[in-house]
């Protein structure tokens, strides 16, 4: 692995020189090393680039699948499928870093599918970063599809804090009876970056629920778009919350949609977009912070960074 990959790994995972347990490490479009554990088996796909990750019922552990692009002119597309057996309880640490020091950009598109069997639990953590000084664009376009069977639980925490010039995120989920989906997404854009995120959640099983929280900060001349569609087709609960802070000439467009097709579907959406409340800055200044420090703290807290 090269030194840029090391740098990226430190930032997007808690890597400290070694991954214990199951992992698969991708560098510039190739899987450069992987390891199975007793309960997690990683198999390379035959027909396309990517892996199948088989997580057995007994698995109670963390699996790492980071992807690093360390040079310009890479267009990486990867298909990763997670097959999570009934009763498994795992943390999946994904995440991706794109580095370029050249005029030409690089891109990573991770297409992830999750199949959660009955009663399984997954916490999915994903951090995206762009690094390097070149004018080339760092692009990350993740596509996520999740199928949650009876009483399974998927928690997704996704974070993009700096350096990604363009991102288009597409997340879809279908929930069965009693399944729970929790999503917490944080995106910060600055300079002329842009980010677009789309969610589509189908609540198809009785008593299924989704809690979708999106926090975004758009600074400088950056632009963000948010759209979510929650379809409550049965007795279910859905909550989405889209909060955005604007700074400089930042722009945010939010279009949340709730579609209830059952009398017992209970769907709520909350949205708030605006600059940082003046009284928040003032309050922190009365604690001795400068205006800039106060803004930083407020934004960091808001994004959960």
């Amino acid at each position: 692995m090269n030194s840029i990959t090391e740098e990226i790994l430190k930032e997007i995972t808690d890597w400290d020189g070694i991954f214990s347990g199951a992992y698969s490490l991708r560098e510039n479009g190739e899987c450069i090393s992987f390891q199975n554990s007793d309960n997690i088996r990683i198999v390379k796909k035959e027909d396309k680039s990517g892996i199948d990750i088989y997580i057995s019922s007994a698995a109670k552990e963390t699996v790492y699948i980071p992807a690093c692009v360390t040079k310009s002119a890479v267009e990486d597309v990867v298909y990763n499928d997670f097959h999570v057996q009934s009763g498994a309880d795992v943390v999946i640490v994904a995440g991706c870093g794109v580095h370029t020091d050249a005029e030409e950009g690089s891109a990573h598109n991770g297409i992830h599918r999750f199949f959660l069997e009955k009663d399984s639990r997954v916490v999915y953590k994903e951090k995206h970063v762009g690094i390097g000084n070149g004018a080339g664009k760092r692009v990350i376009d993740p596509v996520t599809y999740a199928e949650l069977e009876e009483n399974s639980v998927l928690e997704m925490e996704t974070l993009q804090l700096h350096g990604v010039d363009r991102t288009t995120r597409d997340t879809k989920a279908v929930l069965g009876r009693g399944a729970k989906l929790k999503i917490h997404e944080s995106i910060l854009t600055d300079k002329d970056q842009s980010a677009s995120t789309k969610f589509l959640v189908d609540l198809n099983g009785d008593d299924s629920s989704v809690d979708l929280v999106s926090r975004s900060v758009a600074k400088d001349d950056s632009v963000q778009e948010y759209s979510s569609v929650i379809n409550g087709n049965v007795r279910c609960t859905g909550h989405s919350e889209c909060d955005a802070i604007l700074a400089g000439n930042g722009r945010v467009n939010a279009s949340p949609a709730l579609n209830a097709a059952c009398i017992d579907a209970s769907l709520i959406h909350e949205a708030a977009i605006g600059k940082i409340a003046g009284e928040q800055i003032i309050k922190l200044m009365t604690l001795g912070l400068t205006e800039e420090e106060a803004e930083e703290k407020i934004i960091a807290g808001f994004l959960g960074a």
Partner: peptide, 12 residues
């Protein structure tokens, strides 16, 4: 009092 999203009592 002023409310903050994401700032904990400990942070404050």
């Amino acid at each position: 009092p002023v409310a903050f999203k994401g700032i904990t009592v400990r942070n404050l």
